[in-house]
């Protein structure tokens, strides 16, 4: 026996601080207590950044949410993180929470940002810059996954309705701002008028992308057509980002690093 081994034997053996089942349960609870708020903050941060880059002004201003591009761009952007984290939380923990918690966290962050940055700092009225609501869409995705336990069916129905219902779920918030107003002989909506009156020097009228496209086959049915189109794209987006979540959950890179 070497000197090193003798020294090791002479030391008192390390004992776990957790000796009973109750203590172990308490440790698990403490982990939850620490991890869940961090996850919420992480979701809020990542989602806010991601949304600002991909949707940005489209959702910041009440006069940008048109009926052709806003309902198309927004759900496709919103689906990314719920799909990626949805795979992780479902396959590793069987928790159907990614979409709803991500969107809850994001809503919280969006409200803080709109009140602090847009209302208090920049001085815009809150009704002009208040966030849209998406939490119900997250619930549709999570509950579908819970009930079907299938990413395929969740994509087919959950993601489809996630995109299709983005306009109806926000209509109670948006409808008042679509009421018509006459401005010097020109028809505008309340939202258009607010965008004009509350000066944004860096955002001239023409930078808004209002109904610019050639999808006019179905006459005035702009929103339903866009919604169904967004729904089909959302199915593909959901599958793609779920696959990305599957790749990420292998944690190959982490193993390589360590």
């Amino acid at each position: 026996m070497t000197d090193t081994n003798e020294a090791a034997e002479a030391r008192p053996k390390a004992r776990s601080a957790v000796t009973t089942r109750e203590q172990q349960w308490q440790v698990y609870k403490n982990i939850d207590l620490m991890a869940i708020p961090l996850i919420v903050l992480l979701f809020a941060g990542i989602f806010s950044f991601h949304f600002a880059l991909t949707v940005g002004d489209w959702d910041y201003w009440v006069d940008w949410r048109d009926r052709r591009w806003w309902p198309l761009v927004t759900p496709l952007s919103l689906l990314v993180l719920p799909a990626v984290f949805g795979y992780l939380l479902w396959t590793k923990l069987r928790l159907p929470l990614a979409a709803s918690v991500a969107l809850l966290s994001f809503a919280l962050a969006a409200w803080v940002s709109r009140v602090m940055n847009f209302e208090i700092f920049a001085g815009f009225p809150l009704n002009m810059v208040s966030p849209s609501t998406f939490i119900g869409l997250g619930l549709i995705l999570d509950c579908t996954l819970m009930l079907t336990r299938s990413f395929f069916v969740t994509g087919l129905f959950g993601a489809f309705f996630f995109a299709v219902l983005i306009y109806p779920i926000n209509w109670p918030l948006m409808a008042p701002f679509r009421v018509p107003v006459e401005y010097n002989g020109t028809l505008v909506t309340v939202a258009d008028l607010m965008g004009y009156e509350y000066v944004r020097t860096a955002i001239p009228e023409y930078v808004r992308i209002i109904e610019q496209s050639t999808l006019r086959t179905f006459g005035e049915a702009v929103t339903p057509l866009t919604a169904v189109f967004a729904g089909f794209l959302a199915i593909l987006m959901y599958y793609f980002w779920t696959w990305v979540g599957a790749l990420a959950s292998r944690a190959v890179w982490i193993k390589r690093i360590f």
Partner: peptide
């Protein structure tokens, strides 16, 4: 899921009823 879908439907029709005259954003 049922509550969510019902609320979306209810909210939509409530808004339609409350604001029956609306126009798209103008440009």
């Amino acid at each position: 899921l049922a509550v969510t879908l019902s609320l979306i439907g209810f909210g939509y029709f409530w808004a339609q009823d409350e604001y029956p005259i609306t126009t798209p954003l103008q440009t």
